Amino acid sequence: MRTVDINSDLGESFGNWRMGNDEALIPEITTANVACGFHASDPVTMVQTVERCKQHGVAVGAHPGLPDLLGFGRRPMAISPDDAYAYVLYQAGALQGVLRSVGLTLHHIKPHGAMYSILRDDQELAPAAAEAIAQAMDEPVVYWPAPTDAALPNECRRRGIRVVGEIYPDLEYAPDGRLILQRAKHHTDVAEATAQVRRWLDTGRVATPDGTPVEIDAESICLHGDGPNAVEVTQAVKRTVEEAGFRVGPLDATTEVTA
């Protein structure tokens, strides 16, 4: 039975400021991308998030971003290859330490926000980030929004690093397969989200707003935890996957899963 992973970006609160509903979302997902203190989170939030994930059997990956708490890591910065290498390694290492304290290991790395945007296109920074990922994990895995033909995932594949593509049913797709990002999270139409998931499970494609089918090389479903009805959407997507005859669970970091 094919395994379908459901992941979400978590641990993005900071001190007394709260982002998302992690407590309700964690039991519904199989893999978490945990903020590591640069774009969001703090040491206490990281520990609490990891402990909740362990309690519910959720695999944990690092969600490194640019050092931009005020802008939530969504503002582009001019960084060097040395910066890219150190930023990824530092944040993954911090989370790795927290995971080790509860007997878990780092499952994957997934760049956040503007760091993702930079590493999608910058051919100079991608090798540095890929090297950091290779150094941070014994069996390195990168999560990346599908389609995965971009600078960092291509560099990772050249180094033998596994790349896991993601489908985003709570966002819309442009005809070239790129995501149409939202400035602020909107209420997600549950029926549309589940229909997109079922379309991908059946055909390997998603549909653009005008109905154009787009091939998506994905293995994991990513749902944003900060949406106003994120828990409802996640529960519905999970039911859709199970009703389609698939197993919901974290991906084996050493095994390539194909449709």
Rank of each mutant, 00 (worst) to 15 (best):
T3R: 11
N7H: 01
G11Q: 11
E12T: 07
F14L: 10
G15W: 11
R18H: 14
G20L: 08
N21H: 14
D22F: 10
E23S: 14
L25T: 00
L25H: 08
L25M: 15
P27L: 01
E28S: 10
E28A: 13
T30S: 12
T31F: 05
A32C: 12
V34I: 15
G37P: 04
F38E: 05
H39V: 01
A40D: 01
A40G: 01
D42E: 07
M46Y: 05
V47T: 09
V50F: 12
C53F: 02
C53W: 02
K54R: 07
V58C: 10
A59S: 09
A59E: 01
V60M: 07
V60Q: 09
H63D: 03
P64M: 11
G65E: 07
L66W: 05
D68Y: 00
L69T: 11
L70E: 11
G71M: 05
F72G: 02
F72H: 10
F72N: 06
R75L: 08
A78R: 12
I79E: 03
S80D: 04
D82A: 15
D82T: 13
A84K: 03
V88W: 04
Y90A: 08
Q91H: 01
Q96V: 09
G97Q: 09
G97S: 14
R100C: 09
L106Y: 07
I109K: 02
P111V: 03
H112T: 05
H112Q: 00
G113T: 03
S117R: 14
L119W: 01
D122P: 09
E124Q: 02
E124L: 05
L125W: 00
P127F: 01
A130M: 12
A132W: 00
D138H: 13
D138W: 07
E139Q: 14
W144C: 00
A150W: 02
N154L: 13
G160M: 12
V163H: 03
V164N: 13
V164I: 15
E166H: 06
I167S: 08
P169F: 12
D170S: 00
Y173N: 08
Y173W: 10
R183Q: 15
A184C: 04
A184L: 06
H186V: 06
H187Y: 06
T188K: 09
V190A: 00
E192Y: 10
A193V: 02
R198L: 15
R205T: 15
V206N: 08
T208Q: 06
D210Y: 13
D210S: 12
G211I: 04
A218V: 07
E219H: 13
S220L: 04
S220W: 02
C222G: 06
L223E: 00
N229F: 02
A230G: 07
A244P: 11
F246W: 14
G249D: 11
G249Q: 08
P250C: 05
P250A: 02
L251F: 08
D252A: 14
D252K: 08
